[in-house]
């Protein structure tokens, strides 16, 4: 049986090499096992659009797409993501897939300080991929794990609702 090498236990904080695809580009970096994915993205890869808020999965500011699904990047270690495809807010912005959401957030002032916005957008993006025409209640439910400490929720729900309607009518929201 292959696998576990006991010398690993002597090197608890020694960095290991991980490889993943971030925003469509192959990336390799050296991380300590205890380094969270959000710290790796922000500090090593300098993708600071992903925000580290509560660092315990409550606030939603650190959401990224991991293999196509929204996850908290504070609730996993970078080593766990070895081999995965990750999209951060920078990648989603570049590709244009959330351009209508961003424009509608802008138009409706659905952000004040902006700290929660990347997480809100990653979450809203996944919601609209899964549910074409969510009710306002469904939008609120989907956002229940994203805190906006400026309490701008009403405009955020309005913006997502407007984009859902515009998309289902075949046009853009802008």
């Amino acid at each position: 049986m292959s696998g576990f090498d006991e010398t690993l236990l002597d090197d608890a904080d020694e960095t290991v090499r991980v490889r993943f695809i971030v925003n469509g580009r192959k990336v390799a970096c050296e991380v300590a096992p205890r380094e969270t994915l959000v710290d790796c993205l922000r500090n090593t890869l300098e993708l600071t659009g992903t925000h580290a808020g509560c660092e315990m999965g409550a606030c939603g500011a650190c959401l990224v797409q991991l293999d196509g699904r929204a996850v908290h990047s504070c609730l996993m270690f970078a080593v766990q993501a070895d081999g995965a495809a990750i999209n951060t807010i920078e990648g989603l912005t570049e590709s244009g897939v959330i351009a209508d959401l961003q424009a509608e957030f802008h138009r409706r002032n659905a952000l004040q300080c902006g700290f929660c916005t990347p997480g809100m957008l990653v979450n809203a993006h996944e919601l609209l991929l899964q549910v074409a025409q969510p009710s306002r209640e469904e939008i609120r439910d989907a956002l229940s794990g994203n805190y906006c400490r400026c309490t701008g929720y009403e405009a955020i729900v309005d913006a997502i609702d407007a984009v859902a309607k515009a998309r289902s009518e075949g046009g853009g929201a802008t």
Partner: peptide, 8 residues
Amino acid sequence: AHRAIRNR
């Protein structure tokens, strides 16, 4: 929990 927690 919430959607992103359920994803993992």
